[in-house]
């Protein structure tokens, strides 16, 4: 039996060996080392290394074949799953072989090394601070003007980085005005995405279509749902909106007041619009009041009229900012108009 693992001294000796090692003392410097490579810690972990050797050999062989198969599959442009399976099997088998080798066919240990505490001694701290402070003092003493100038130059750089550079990334929000207004104007024809103006007899009762102003087809902010809820007569959703819903038509902003998704799902039976992102539900008969979910405000309604040729047109833009709220949206109804 080899020497007993005499590790009693190992831990306490640790600090010394760490320092000596970096100075370049070789292992032979540890004359009379207390552990030989015959110690049980240097034996392999496996009880039956032959079997593990076999398993590792099989894994590497499988990996070899699968890598070759991957190469062949790539060469003949096989389908994606063939490429992936061959590559995945090859890599996994290779990794399995390596792990098994390391886990079972290498010295079982345990081995240790010393760990210095992170906290330094007051003396170490003092020396460092003294070095830093005294040398630093010599450098800046009687150079007060230089220090201030250097600081000022740095500050100007900081300001320049912060303002003109970041400022140039995009326009100011209220410049483009799209937060407060859409492209709907008085008289704008309700136009489908294909560019066809909607006439009063185009949609059956229960029908729904997404419309835009003619100059903003596909516009993210002016997108509007047009729903026909009855054949004739005006729909009044709220007091003050007596003329907004001619011939049974209702038009609402399609941008959810919660997080801005398109309110795309219409349930005809209950006359409700559902936002598929976070399931806010709007009752179109009562001015698109939110009846369920996280949406805080009704969808703004677009006032409509039918012109003499039967085309549906907007009376005006929405009377409040559409979509989700934002800091500069004043109060519950609008902002700077």
């Amino acid at each position: 039996m080899p020497e007993a693992p005499g590790t009693d001294g190992a831990g306490t000796d640790g600090a010394g060996t760490e320092g000596a090692g970096t100075e370049g003392a070789g292992r032979s410097g540890h004359a009379g080392a207390s552990v030989s490579t015959g110690a049980p810690q240097f034996q392999v972990a496996a009880k039956n290394p032959r079997r593990v050797e076999g398993a590792v050999a099989v894994a590497f062989l499988a990996s070899l074949l699968a890598f070759a198969a991957f190469g062949a599959a790539f060469w003949v442009a096989a389908s994606s799953w063939v490429l992936g399976v061959t590559l995945g099997v090859a890599l996994s088998a290779f990794g399995f072989g390596l792990v098994a080798w390391g886990k079972y066919l290498m010295p079982q240990g345990p081995f240790e090394e010393p760990r210095p505490q992170m906290a330094t001694t007051p003396a170490e701290k003092q020396e460092f601070v003294a070095d830093f402070a005294t040398r630093g003092k010599i450098a800046v003493e009687r150079r007060g003007v230089l220090v201030k100038l250097m600081g000022a130059a740095g500050a100007v750089l900081g300001v320049v980085l912060a303002f003109p550079l970041i400022r140039s990334l995009g326009p100011r929000p209220n410049q483009e005005q799209s937060l407060y207004h859409t492209k709907w104007r008085k008289g704008a024809k309700l136009t489908s995405i294909e560019g066809r103006a909607v006439r009063v007899d185009d949609i059956e009762v229960g029908g729904i279509i997404t419309v835009f102003p003619p100059d903003d087809l596909g516009g993210a902010f002016s997108q509007t749902v047009l729903i026909r809820v009855q054949q004739t007569g005006d729909i009044v959703t709220e007091p003050g909106r007596e003329t907004w819903g001619p011939h049974g038509y209702l038009a609402y902003s399609k941008v959810c007041t919660h997080a801005g998704c398109p309110v795309g799902l219409y349930e005809e039976l209950t006359q409700q619009l559902l936002c598929p992102c976070h399931q806010s539900l709007f009752d179109i008969g009562t001015g698109a009041m939110p009846v369920f979910g996280p949406a805080p405000r009704p969808l703004p309604q677009l006032p409509l009229y039918v012109d003499s040729k039967g085309y549906l047109r907007a009376q005006a833009d929405y009377d409040e900012p559409i979509g989700p709220g934002f800091w500069y949206r004043g109060g519950s109804n609008g902002g700077p108009q």
Partner: peptide, 8 residues
């Protein structure tokens, strides 16, 4: 087993 310091 007791841990072995490798530089021992």
């Amino acid at each position: 087993l007791e841990p072995v310091a490798l530089d021992e």
